[in-house]
Design a protein around this nucleic acid. Structure first.
Lengths: 363, 363
DNA sequence: TTGTAGGCGTTATCAA
DNA sequence: TTGATAACGCCTACAA
């Protein structure tokens, strides 16, 4: 007689069969108890539950997923966990995934424009994730990673911080609107030479902020001259250098919009160095509303983005795509969501300094 | 005859059998090609690979894990993704996991001392993760979540930022050494009234920094008087209030060690408000070396922790635990790793201001 | 070098 | 209400 295949001395993990044996019922009955399905007599249910507890049974989700053909997992592919916005967004993705009952795979790529995306996507497909949140900002030509033929191979996918386009589901902050708020606010404060320290213009988000500034100036009858613009790289150092360069190009600048809080911080340092008072000589505004920005000196006017919500909404959209019974149905259709940010006014842009305004600004 | 059970119209996913049929070989042969095992003739290998490509076959890791009894997944349970240190550490965990071939589950808990840990651990066990990185700092009594009976039920686990103890594998920064460096540095600069703004003392890490300060003062023959200490909550606001309180308690303070950079930032703001010059009147030092700290005004002396390495080392330790063939072997033994931080000296603690020091400080 | 049989732990079908 | 059995997609043992 042939020898039976016995893989290893029976593993530590208790299975349905063990529970069934212990409680003297069939495997299927135990399965029913575990999943609360079907009618089961109170007596057996009780007996089974006792066995489950005494043996320390835990269902094997791998096996369950194999037969049910869904893994109840999502994946987030992200860049920039060391930055405030991206890490908050990932946190939002995690929270919403958790609330909807998914486990979440985390995949970080070291650089938004030079990745090993193919192998990541291969792995995710092999793990049979039910959906993917693509949290890599659109930089340069990295959008082209998304090949049409991939989209068909992959599970439902939602893209963050990327230029909306038909056929893709996108969730992003309305950067253009945020930048417009900033520029309008500076104009309303009486500033007429409003300089700009942009993020790297290969970034879609940086270009959007640039456009918001530009459009608002034009609408106000002001000239968005090239001498008013310096391109930074999001870092505080580039903000420091950016302000110096800006003042060299255009000495009569009376306001500066730095396109994130880090660059604003650098610009603030440069202003101190150069003896320019903020806001008296130069008003300064940032973007992001990092927790620290309220404690810069002076406290920084900035734009609050609902970065956690970006992640949460992404998962909600993904969930509806996954749920949709037929790919033709409404909730399966690609959707675009733009979240409107909010201007947070603090002392760095206000001429009329209110002594109590700092305390007020702190939430 | 009994009807066969056919679950659904065959799914989109291509299986080994499909490839086998297409290429006219057995399932096992295809499996061998996929996994590069055994000897296979060049001809069949080629034929099979062609079929794999044309059909778009991807191995189902779920099925593979089911039989191999290992999922090739790790999980990180973390708190504080919105803070610099924790988020960097998670990034380190992800990088090292990826390099070792694991996929990583991300689980965030909203609060380090009031969690729903049991359900998270249940899920991870049910998903048969091969190991767990417990990246929740030790706060209050949250260490007691780790019940001895759980440790046996769970896969190998490594704990971060937690008081080392026999039986647990721990990776942490040597906070006490870091705080000692700071205090010694201030002493060496001639400061003799060195105040302390601590983190919440329910945190182990905060207590360690406190001890480092205290021990160093004692060793220097100075008195760590209670009036020199204020307890903060890591936030910039508490640093602001902390400095005010400290100066009220002990007006002749000539140096302040704020136990993280955020509180240092708040203290900096308060100093400006109160007209105290930094460092001339009060030297100020932080802890963390956040990227912004080099751009505070003045640039902040602080302590650089190798937070990414904490995550990487954790996964390395975990990997060795997982690999270990027998639980008695060396690499299976619990280990403690303390990473030594480094003092980063900038202008906020230096009396002799070097004009070029800021540029030097920027890396 | 290749194939067959059996089993991983779960769920679905259908009969009892 | 409960149970026997096939199937999910893959890998191991063993034979050919």
């Amino acid at each position: 007689m042939r020898k039976l295949y016995l893989p290893k001395p029976h593993s530590l993990h208790v299975t349905l069969r063990d529970v069934a044996k212990q409680s003297g019922v069939s495997i299927k009955t135990v399965s029913r108890v575990v999943n609360n399905q079907g009618e089961i007599s109170e007596a057996t249910r009780h007996r089974v539950q006792k066995a489950i507890k005494s043996l320390g049974y835990r269902p094997n989700i791998l096996a369950r997923s194999l037969v049910s053909r869904k893994s109840n997992t999502l994946a987030v592919v992200a860049w920039g966990l060391d930055y405030y916005g991206p890490s908050r967004t990932v946190a939002g993705v995690e929270q919403q995934s958790n609330e909807l009952g998914y486990s979440l795979f985390l995949n970080l790529i070291p650089n938004p424009d030079d990745p090993n995306v193919a192998s990541i996507l291969d792995t995710l497909a092999a793990r049979r994730v039910d959906g993917i949140v693509w949290a890599v900002p659109e930089v340069g030509r990295n959008r082209e990673w998304i090949r049409p033929d991939w989209l068909e191979q992959l599970p439902p996918t939602v893209f963050l911080s990327m230029r909306p386009s038909p056929g893709l589901s996108v969730v992003a902050v309305d950067n253009r609107a945020g930048a417009a708020m900033v520029t309008q606010h500076l104009f309303d404060q009486g500033r007429r030479k409003i300089g700009l320290i942009t993020g790297p213009l290969v970034w879609w988000e940086a270009r959007e902020r640039y456009e918001g500034w530009r459009e608002t100036l034009l609408r106000a009858g002001l000239n968005p001259a090239p001498s008013l613009v310096v391109e930074g790289d999001w870092s505080a150092m580039s903000g420091d250098q950016g302000l110096r360069k800006l003042l060299a190009q255009q000495p009569d600048v009376d306001a500066v919009f730095a396109c994130n809080d880090q660059m604003a911080l650098g610009a603030l340092g440069a202003a101190h160095h150069l003896g320019r008072r903020v806001p008296q000589d130069v008003a300064l505004v940032g973007f992001d509303d990092t927790p620290e920005s309220a404690y810069f000196w002076p406290p920084l006017t900035t734009v609050h983005q609902h970065v956690v919500d970006v992640g949460r909404v992404a998962v909600q959209v993904l969930h509806s795509h996954i749920q949709s019974p037929q790919p033709g149905k409404d909730n399966a259709k690609p959707s675009t969501t733009l979240l409107t940010p909010e201007l947070v006014v603090r002392q760095s842009s206000l001429l009329t300094l209110q002594p109590s305004s700092q305390a007020v600004a702190v939430q």
